[in-house]
Each structure stands twice: as structure tokens, then as C-alpha cells.
Design a protein around this nucleic acid. Sequence first.
DNA 1: CTTCATGCCTAAGAAAATTATGTATACATT
DNA 2: AATGTATACATAATTTTCTTAGGCATGAAG
Lengths: 112, 112
Amino acid sequence: MGNSKLYKGSLSTIILKLLSETEKMYGYEITQKVKILSHGELTITEGALYPALHKLEAEGFLEVEVVKVDNRFRKYYKLTEKGATETTSKLEELNDYIKTMQALMSPSFNLQ
Amino acid sequence: MGNSKLYKGSLSTIILKLLSETEKMYGYEITQKVKILSHGELTITEGALYPALHKLEAEGFLEVEVVKVDNRFRKYYKLTEKGATETTSKLEELNDYIKTMQALMSPSFNLQ
DNA sequence: CTTCATGCCTAAGAAAATTATGTATACATT
DNA sequence: AATGTATACATAATTTTCTTAGGCATGAAG
């Protein structure tokens, strides 16, 4: 377990998708959720996550709300409208990629 | 067409898989085959392909045979034994990744 | 004689990870 | 009291792997 490789380019799609379902989440929560949903197959490193969140925010896809909980602060992220649109297009892109890869991996299904 | 994004990390898997089916191929041939199999969805740029081929060769996964055809030379690549093993593990890795992504993208299927 | 297809190549730069830290709180264990 | 683990944020250096943009050469078609 814990060894499914993260293909570069898919992290932002994962973040957006999770936020399209949970309204608002903070970074650490995202890493835990990914572990659970992937049954321990995928670990999001913090060195990848936080820069990705900051970039999505800078692009206007996420907005932040800082909340103090138990004397610790959390930065909750949620989708903007622009971010919701982006999520749709990222998901489509991922599905296209998976279809394309399956076509390449199963060439016998593609003889015309 | 021609806009399916190449997720970083998948190119070597594509090359290995194609070579596991066609015995020997040269670079240009690989770019054309990918276009056909992906129905024009995916274009492998030469700037990505040739360095990737050289790396796979350096790692001992491919071996080269230079052939002169029509006064032009071609570099045919074929899998080594080590390369065949690597292909199997790369394909498994890709399948795991796709399964994991589908789990993340369809969380309703993952409630325990 | 210019363009397109075939066929190889590399260099500069960007994108997006990994790896390795650093900071801080709080709780449990030794 | 000291250490480790979990929570929670962050950045810096490095590596991997692309994209973009070019170069070189042959041969056919226009």
C-alpha cells in the first residue's frame, strides 16, 4: 500500500474534485481524505499540496478562510465560481486522458 | 482533437507498451502510432520522445539497432529482457493509478 | 524553389513533483 | 522530564519530465 505514483498534473484535479464535494476543506484534511478514499494507495505530500493550493488560490479558483480551532489555525479553502467551472473542465480532461491511455494500452480494441 | 494532455510520467509507459507489441520501432514511427491509436487525441512531441528513448536505453530497458533505409538512417529500438519486466511493472503502476483516480473521482462508490 | 513528410537531434525554460527541513500546539508514552 | 506522534501550516533545493523552439538532412510534390 501507499505506493501508487502520483502522475504529475493530476494533483490539482484531485483537490478541485474533493472541494466540489465537501464545500470547504483545509490542507491537512485533504491529505487524510485522499488516504482514506484511495485506501492508502496515494499519499499527498505537503511539499506538493501547499504550493498547489496557493497556486489554485492565486488563479482565482479557490478562496481562503482562516479559522482558529483549539489554539491552532486552519486555512479552509473553498471553490469560487470560476473554480467550479475549472473543476468541470479538469475532470473532463482527466477522463479524456484515461480513455486515451486505455486506447493505447489495449490496441486490439482499436483496429478499424 | 489533438488536445488530450500528456500527464507527466506516462510517456515511458506508452513507449514500453508499444514496444512490447511491435518488437522493434523507431522514434518517428512511435509518434505516428500514438496518433493513430489515440485517434489524433495525443501527440508525442519529439522534444519529449527522443530524450525519453535515450533514457530508457541508458537504463538498460531498450537496445538500439541503426538501419539505413532510403539513404536515411533509422534507429530501431526494442525491449531488452529487463525492459520487458519493466513494462509489466509500469503497466501495473498505470492501472493502479487509474483505479485510484477513479476511486477519488467517484467517492460515492467508496463508502464502507 | 519552396513546402511537406520523413527522420534524427539538442538546448532553454517551465511545470510540478520529491525530499528535506522548519515552526508550533497538544496529547500520550517512556 | 523527555520523547514521540498527530495535527497544521510553510518554504527551499533539487529532480523529473515535459513544452517550445530551434537545427540538420533526404526526397517527393507543387
